[in-house]
Design a protein around this nucleic acid. Structure first.
Lengths: 124, 124
DNA sequence: TTCGTATATCCCTTGACACGTATATGCTGT
DNA sequence: ACAGCATATACGTGTCAAGGGATATACGAA
């Protein structure tokens, strides 16, 4: 399985995580609320636990699963650079602002990391 | 392919996205920087474009790919509830605070959505 | 101990998808 | 028109994970 991203690629697993965000749940409760067969729930929980998304405690014969923050924080961290990107990029709005001469700081518009690779004409 | 999450489950695709966050790039530039075969790059870009993660414009015989914000914003949106979760959950720190009698508001600790399901003894 | 409930694991099949390699398409300059 | 580069697509293959169903394990109540 490996990466955090592969884990949350599975819709049922995302559903389970969303369920657990409000409070801890037993396998049976998850099974009923999500209407999925119990082995499926258990298997996904196994994956989630191995990846550190959840932890479980034993309560009689049930297991109570609750969320652990770290892996999703990792996703959040990966997302950070992009957030910067799109907040500097309110897109149409940005163009408006630019036309009003707002000139914030260094904008992405014409910044080329490989500046003069252009060989022939620029087309359009 | 379907969901945004499956798209970013692929490491190479995440690499491409991360590369594009700084500035737009041609296929060849991506190919070189990420050291992956050109067909691979093209195929992943195809997927990313179909899913709305990137868009391309033609520049002579190259295609310049650039990021589009929406799909990743969707991921960000999905993450939101969890952010609330873990900021209410500084965990060990929280316990410290609780011991100091901080009693913020309704904490997750003993909040059961199914309150009195407990059948026998609590074990431990 | 025997039964019932809760959960985990096993086996098997099926379907995606990523990759490599080869090839097609498209554009450019000569 | 031709050669060369940049990019896209097609095909065949291997891997891996999800799902269904049956079964195993663990615990509790009687």
């Amino acid at each position: 399985m490996e990466s955090v991203f592969e884990i949350i690629a599975e819709p049922n697993r995302r559903a389970i995580l969303s369920l657990l965000v409000s409070s801890q749940q037993s396998v049976g409760e998850i099974e009923r609320q999500l209407r999925m067969p119990q082995p499926t729930v258990s298997k996904h929980l196994r994956v989630l636990r191995d990846a550190g998304f959840v932890e479980s405690t034993v309560d009689a014969q049930r297991r109570l699963y609750r969320l652990k923050p770290e892996p999703l924080q990792e996703v959040d961290a990966w997302l950070a650079p992009f957030r910067r990107f799109w907040s500097a990029h309110v897109d149409a709005l940005e163009r408006h602002l630019d036309r009003m001469g707002h000139d914030r700081m260094g904008h992405t518009k014409e910044v080329q990391s490989t500046p003069a690779k252009r060989q022939t004409r620029r087309r359009r």
